[in-house]
Write a protein that binds this DNA or RNA. Sequence first.
DNA 1: CTTAATGCAAAACCTTTGCATTGGC
DNA 2: GCCAATGCAAAGGTTTTGCATTAAG
Lengths: 140, 140
Amino acid sequence: MLQEILGELKRRGCRITEQRQTIIEAVLAVAGSRFTAYDVWERVKAIQPELGLDTIYRNIKLLEELGFLASIGGVGKEGNRYEVAGRDHHHHLVCLRCGKTECIDYCPIDDVLVNLVQERGYDLVRHQLELMGICRTCRQ
Amino acid sequence: MLQEILGELKRRGCRITEQRQTIIEAVLAVAGSRFTAYDVWERVKAIQPELGLDTIYRNIKLLEELGFLASIGGVGKEGNRYEVAGRDHHHHLVCLRCGKTECIDYCPIDDVLVNLVQERGYDLVRHQLELMGICRTCRQ
DNA sequence: CTTAATGCAAAACCTTTGCATTGGC
DNA sequence: GCCAATGCAAAGGTTTTGCATTAAG
């Protein structure tokens, strides 16, 4: 995955800086859960303390444009969250207490819904389902 | 609805100020679509120009605590959106271009999903489905 | 009269942007 | 050496907070 991203960046004429590589590695390391720009920053700071949040944002935006990351909104007042794209279509199960997120590989979107959207005159672009609950650990 | 809210506020020992009443009326007026604090402010300013956004936020927070409003996140970089609570369970259809929101009174959550969540050890508290597309007006 | 609510201003967030400097290529 | 990317600082937008003042009860 790392090589694939670096390759595409080169093909696009982007430069592979130390910072950029560190950021991409950090993003891939937290992949699996949805992360904020700040999450990435915390990881990256340990390796390159001078690296600023602005650089994180710029790189996240770049990766988003290239289709490697997808913005998936955030809950409450936390900032935007992102996840690594390219995974099969899926939804999220979020623990309301600890924020832990799991992916659900099942999609309940059915014809009824698709028709409803069409009737209202919308072109459906995407959708997201968020299941919120309390995980086993937090319940104890 | 207005009377119900005012009654509960009094019962709680809150004071009914002109500003508060104007805000609640504005909130109820935009009910049906999801609104931001700014949306409310624009309506309210016409009636009480001195009323500040801070007062809107304070009152929205209060109404949220009393259970009359629910925060339902926002799309992209727009601020939080709210809606009047107590309505039947429903989901949302959002136009990605203009932000307009419609309610969908159909819920596709099925047994497969409920079982999946249980298997993972979560108590399902709530869920939200967001259908995103481009509305007829914006497509032209 | 008491004290909750407001108005104002300032701060706290998250995110973006301008510009000089650095460093890939 | 060229120009993309970074670092820094500052600005934008949303939301919160402190504090003196106003007004509901």
